[in-house]
Design a protein around this nucleic acid. Structure first.
Lengths: 227, 227
DNA sequence: GGGATTGATTGATCAGTATCAAATCCCTCT
DNA sequence: AGAGGGATTTGATACTGATCAATCAATCCC
């Protein structure tokens, strides 16, 4: 875990466009960034663990971070996957003081770390920061509610289709997208075993979806929308 | 839908103890309550529908409200069940402007309605209100994340056991609880068909759980914890 | 350039839950 | 208290996805 205060240009751009920071004025931005530390982590590294005292939250600048919980027998359930620009654990600012799940990098990643207490203080005095926090937590809530509805309403092929559609340009009859991460991570996001994801992809072949490595080709976007 | 400005003593007590309002100082409280309207709804009444413009959020004062989404074929998936003291749709204050799911009373209910724009304005100028909002949304986020983890990690009997345990006093070897609503609502909360809930209860008989109507008796709480 | 490692696919089987139908229970209303 | 009707339970069946094992593909690495 290589920690530093320096920020690459690319990471800085991601940070400034992150929903949590994008709407902030200059003074709040400067103060937040002054209390931030950057770290670069290898793949599969735990960022934090369930039960640990929650004294920081994070913003992903590069790579992907997987939030998951463990059962007693050691099975894992992904709860959320954070992409560049996403924050995580920020919702513990005004509630719990213990992390409620594990966070692990899914590949080499760069994170910005924010001290919980410092941001809490800042949010108390700067309404703009408070507003940004509400927006960030709200966005996460919408995402998790969508996730529950997806899990409960749709089968594996339908969830995969929904995911593909969510990454297709809205118009156009055909499309080609590239998965930004391994299929096993996508499987976890969708609440599936990797084998089930594989089978879902192959069942989508009959509606014109072709998969080669990380490239997914969609022959007929509209056909995919009808299940 | 009988609307009024009056508040029964019981409803007022619930409102004041609701997490969203509990921490507020007097002036914020007075202003919020002045922009609030109370309504009493019969069972199975829709409070709001997916796609409608989101111009109010609600606090449940009495009864239960079910938030759910519909599939194209008309199947329903519960996303959250709100008990007295819970707010819902408040997370749309600073993000979306359209309701993302349906809300329906599960039985006769009393709700406090808050105008979205009015509270938005109030939150902008009163940091205490903003903080209360963050806390409310955060609490919901924790709940939905728990829900995802439960769905993905546990079987039906385990989820039912978890629910029972969450309503048992922490200590004591035996316990007796009363469901505050119909079993079909519990089934939906746990992501189960009513038949599956019924079978889960009967499979818990062998660990000393007895169900008669809404009364659930637990012979050995500790045994229930081990699955 | 060939093992070795890791990730993905495929096949076979099994567990868990949905669904549909029928019987029964419980609550409410009069 | 008894009747009526919705809620719940039970039974039979089908389906979905998990799991385990084996194969295949791609990448890594001296």
């Amino acid at each position: 875990m290589n920690s530093s205060l320096k920020l690459s240009n690319r990471d800085r751009a991601v940070l400034m466009k992150a929903p949590f920071l994008a709407g902030l004025g200059n003074s709040a931005l400067v103060r937040l960034m002054s209390m931030m530390t950057i770290s670069t982590l290898p793949a599969r590294k735990f960022v934090l663990r369930e039960g640990e005292s929650a004294d920081a939250f994070y913003c992903v600048l590069n790579g992907y971070v997987r939030l998951f919980r463990l059962s007693r027998e050691g099975r894992e359930a992904d709860i959320m996957v954070c992409a560049p620009g996403d924050t995580f654990a920020e919702h513990l600012l005004f509630s719990d003081n213990v992390y409620r799940c594990n966070a692990q990098t899914a590949e080499p990643a760069t994170l910005a770390r924010f001290d919980m207490q410092a941001v809490r203080d800042l949010a108390q005095q700067d309404p703009e920061v408070a507003k940004a926090l509400i927006a960030a937590v709200s966005r996460h809530l919408v995402g998790t509610m969508d996730c529950i509805a997806n899990d409960r309403l749709f089968t594996a092929p339908q969830r995969v289709a929904n995911y593909i559609l969510s990454r297709c340009p809205a118009d156009g009859s055909s499309a080609s997208i590239r998965l930004p991460f391994q299929k096993s991570l996508l499987a976890g996001m969708l609440g599936l075993a990797p084998e089930a994801l594989s089978r879902a992809f192959s069942s989508l072949r009959r509606v014109g979806v072709t998969v080669r490595g990380r490239i997914i080709q969609v022959g007929d976007v509209q056909a995919l929308r009808n299940i």
